[in-house]
Design a protein around this nucleic acid. Structure first.
Length: 847
RNA sequence: GCCCGGAUGGCGGAAUGGCAGACGCGGCGGCCUCAAAAGCCGCUGUCCGAAAGGGCGUGCGGGUUCGAGUCCCGCUCCGGGCACCA
């Protein structure tokens, strides 16, 4: 309760009304133009913390603003409800993951509703709902049919803490698990993949057209990592130069990938990754010991150890005893095995050019291999590998060319001679989606001794999770030890079969929920084409930058893949037209999060100052892209927001000027308030009716522009200024119509930010629902000032100001400046050397 | 190492190349009160000055310009991303 405004009662009442009235329920046949605002659906970790409050406040501002602008705004909400923490809770013996999750959902939903954020709750989705699982599984089977899902053995990331494999995207740069922080191991395992690499080019190229933060686009570009160069097939020979043949009798060849085919003349050795299958055939008996020793050591190393640049290089490679013919020079060069070459990039083998590659240079020095420069370094070059521009040398037919031209010439030569061809490579790997965990969507296939991998037919979907499983972290899915789940019948032959017991990565769930929101009732398909065409793409997608690669890349892939397999409109390629990444909230220097245990609950603020004041704090404290720190000062700022709302309430509910004096700025000696102070809000001009109208319409224009560019902090600041101006105008006795119009505008402008108090104030003032009112339009004739303060500078320094007509001409402005006593004094009788005039803002007199 | 961001009062932050510090927090003073709280009114970058006024001032050093927080060049520090990807 603040001064007659019972925020607890008012907020509860309006939240109930918005729900009952279905104000923010929108259908595809709504005649208003559609607009889709979406906050990334949350993992249900319990009651909301301030990070949630910030996220949903930002989204809610846009939902309410666009609605007042006349759009039918689709504003759905859901829960990313599968995932590890729930299962870990079950292992600890607390509760079944489903119960645990549903209790957390109830808590989070309740705090989101208490915030006054409005959603079309009819569309609520939860990843673990059987219907959602069904469609997730249908999508899997269609991707399987299309070759976009496949099972393969590959070197994969294994997290010992989570007891499951992970996608590349879930391993941090330091080689640890993004979830548990454990050091991730490499294992060679057969797993399920989604073929995201098929879309590598499109995912990369389409980034250019997206209205997304540049840093997110850059991160995705780096992640996809396209490079272009050539593949070259090298003949393998023994030390006397005779061809070595493979097991099948054909000549043995090593294929290498290089981005620098122009440096071919400098290739002085070749390196195979230890896991490259050609290692065995290339290794001579004398060298078998060294090679296998290296291979076994590398196999036992974690990714972190392997990527480490510490330690002596001579322990990290081994000669195989065989040679390759350099196709450029015709000379044999030795073949090595070394751990600095990765098996799963390019061809798993490289041509080493120590003069132009730093890693090759170090390795060559450690092993005493020759170094032949093929690019002339600049004169001041310090030595070592030179990867820069320059003229080709020691390179036969390439000599004299620059690097780019030589690269093209070399590729042409390779293609003509049949030794190689142009090639493009990506850093992006296919998305490993299987997880050896319980609390996820089962992968809907069975393994039949007769028919092999068989997808579960649609009429047997969804494959649901049995509830009676033992939660033991064994490294295998708990489903494997559930006989009823494991044993199945082959849908094709009817014989006994075993069910796949791995579940899908939870990022699969979040890769298409935004499409499902368009019509979550559709019982015939995961995505309703017409509804998706109507609402997609998401106009404003709001979330944290932590998802810059993972979720946002997967969702872009999924949207394309679903279109291409006929499960969504093919023309919808990009799911999120505009992305806004909000800053995180830090407490004690670290991101506020449940897992770190440093969360501040909004509940105490709901009780002490109300949802509106807390929302206002989050909007006002700084630009929404920036991180903010929760500090000792925070409570004081929140109190300041609460005080501001109280002033708004007084201004909006006071009946008339005389009565206003009781609430704002009145003293016994000065019952109308001190009018002289009112000059603050309209520099120099008297607080008259016209001035108040000008301030009102300037505020409308400024707040509207600010909303369009996410400058919510300045929008709130402008509302505060308008509130101060209305108070001052009342004290100065400005006529009621201008004051009432200004107050009406203020209440409407505040409606997206502080929806409850705005709704209550509007209902009392005008009746009806402020959020159903059209957004106020600024009157252009009132935006221009009549009189402005013109700045007079001498030599660029501010020396005087004069009030002038806004339409003042150049000559008049100069005359006004030159008649200023301050200017005359500084000129000391001499004429100015020059006068720069920018009416009506400024005159600069140059001496 | 490479690529992005950023640096403005005591604090959070404002400023299409044109009055630096909007708005708010904190602080100081005043009104109201027996008093306090709340509220309201004002002041609040810094130095010199009684004042008028002036000097200095947006991380550092240069430059462009009549004029630079803003543009350019070179640094420092902080934050983030990438980094045996051939």
């Amino acid at each position: 309760m603040i001064d007659g405004y019972d925020f607890a009662e008012v907020e509860a009442r309006w939240q109930q009304r918005w729900a009952e009235w279905g104000t923010y329920e929108v259908d595809a046949d709504d005649p208003r133009p559609p607009y889709y605002v979406l906050c990334m659906y949350p993992y249900p970790s319990g009651p909301a913390h301030q990070g949630h409050v910030r996220n949903y406040t930002l989204g809610d501002v846009l939902v309410r603003y666009r609605t007042m602008q006349g759009n039918a705004v689709l504003s759905p909400f859901g829960f990313d409800s599968f995932g590890l923490p729930a299962e870990n809770a079950a292992i600890k013996g607390g509760a079944h993951p489903r119960e645990h999750t549903e209790a957390r959902i109830a808590e989070l939903k309740s705090s989101v509703q208490r915030l006054g954020a409005v959603y079309d709750w009819r569309r609520e989705l939860r990843s673990h709902d059987p219907e959602y699982m069904r469609w997730n599984q249908v999508i899997f089977t269609r991707l399987l049919d299309a070759g976009l899902a496949y099972r393969a053995e590959a070197p994969v990331n294994w997290c010992p803490g989570c007891q499951t494999v992970l996608a590349n995207e879930q391993v941090l740069a330091d080689g640890t698990c993004e979830r548990s922080g454990d050091v991730v191991e490499r294992r060679q395992l057969e797993q399920w993949f989604y073929r995201i690499t098929r879309y590598a080019d499109e995912l990369l190229d389409a980034l250019d057209g997206l209205d997304w933060p540049e840093r997110v686009k850059t991160m995705q570009r780096n992640w996809i990592g396209r490079s272009s160069g050539a593949r070259i097939a090298l003949d393998v020979v023994d030390e006397s130069g005779d061809a070595i043949t493979a097991a099948d009798g054909t000549p043995l060849r090593i294929e290498v990938y290089t981005t620098r085919p122009d440096t071919g003349f400098g290739m002085t050795y070749v390196v195979l990754a230890p896991e490259n299958p050609l290692v065995r055939a290339c290794t001579t008996p004398e060298h078998a010991g060294g090679v296998s020793e290296l291979a076994s050591r590398v196999a036992g190393e974690s990714e972190v150890e392997r990527l480490s640049t510490e330690g002596p290089l001579d322990k990290r490679g081994a000669a195989t005893g065989s040679f390759c013919v350099n196709p450029f020079t015709g000379a044999p060069v030795p073949v090595y095995v070394a751990d600095y070459v990765l098996a799963d990039y390019g061809t798993g083998a490289i041509m080493a050019v120590p003069a132009e590659d730093a890693r090759d240079f170090e390795f060559a020095r450690a092993y005493g291999l020759p170094i032949v420069r093929t690019v002339q370094p600049p004169e001041d070059f310090a030595g070592g590998a030179y990867a820069g521009e320059g003229r080709k040398i020691n390179s036969g037919f390439l000599d004299g060319l620059d690097v780019a031209a030589a690269k093209e010439r070399a590729i042409s030569w390779l293609e003509e001679s049949g030794a190689g061809q142009r090639s493009v490579q990506y850093r992006l790997r296919d998305w490993l989606i299987s997880r050896q965990r319980y609390w996820g969507c089962p992968i809907p296939v069975v393994y039949c001794p007769a028919d092999g991998i068989v997808a579960v037919p649609d009429d047997q979907l969804p494959v649901l999770l049995p509830d009676d499983v033992e939660f033991l972290p064994t490294g295998e899915s708990p489903l494997r030890s559930h006989a009823g789940f494991l044993h199945a019948t082959c849908p094709r032959c009817g014989g006994p079969a075993t069910r796949e017991t791995d579940t899908m990565d939870t990022f699969v769930d979040s890769s298409w929920y935004f499409l499902r929101f368009c019509d979550p009732w559709d019982a015939s398909a995961p995505v309703d084409d017409a509804a998706a065409r109507h609402f997609m793409p998401v106009d404003r997608y709001i979330g944290g930058i932590t998802h810059a690669i993972l979720h946002l890349l997967y969702a872009r892939f999924f949207t394309r893949a679903l279109g291409d397999v006929g499960l969504a409109p093919t023309e919808i390629r990009e799911p999120f037209a505009q992305l806004f990444t909000q800053g995180m909230i830090r407490l004690g220097g670290r991101a506020m999060s449940k897992s770190r245990g440093n969360v501040i609950s909004p509940n105490e603020y709901f009780a002490s100052v109300g949802a509106d004041a807390l929302r206002l704090y989050h909007l006002f404290v700084g630009p929404p892209v920036d991180d903010i720190d929760w500090t000792e000062q925070t409570d004081e700022i929140i109190d300041g927001c609460s005080r501001f709302l109280r002033r708004v309430w007084h201004v909006a509910t006071a009946a008339d000027g005389a009565e206003m004096a009781d609430v704002v700025g009145a003293t016994p000696e000065d019952p109308a308030g001190d009018a002289s102070h009112a000059t603050r809000w309209a520099s120099g001009s008297a607080p008259d009716e016209l001035a108040l109208r000008r301030v009102t319409h300037q505020t409308i224009a400024r707040v509207t522009a600010a909303l369009e560019r996410y400058s919510f902090n300045t929008a709130v600041a402008d509302c505060m200024k308008l509130t101060n101006a209305i108070g001052a105008a009342r004290r100065a006795g400005v006529a009621a119509p201008a004051v009432e119009d200004a107050t009406d505008a203020l209440v409407k402008l505040l409606a997206p930010f502080a929806p409850h108090i705005a709704a209550e104030a509007w209902e009392r003032r005008r009746g009806g629902h402020v959020h159903g009112e059209p957004w106020p339009l600024a009157d252009p004739t009132l935006l221009a000032e009549e009189n402005v303060t013109m700045v007079i500078q001498v030599d660029g320094k501010l020396r005087d100001r004069v009030e002038v007509d806004a339409g003042i001409g150049e000559d008049e402005a100069i005359a006004a400046a030159l008649s200023s006593p301050r200017v005359l004094e500084l000129l000391g009788g001499s004429a100015p050397a020059r006068v720069v005039v920018r009416p009506p803002r400024l005159v600069n007199v140059v001496r």
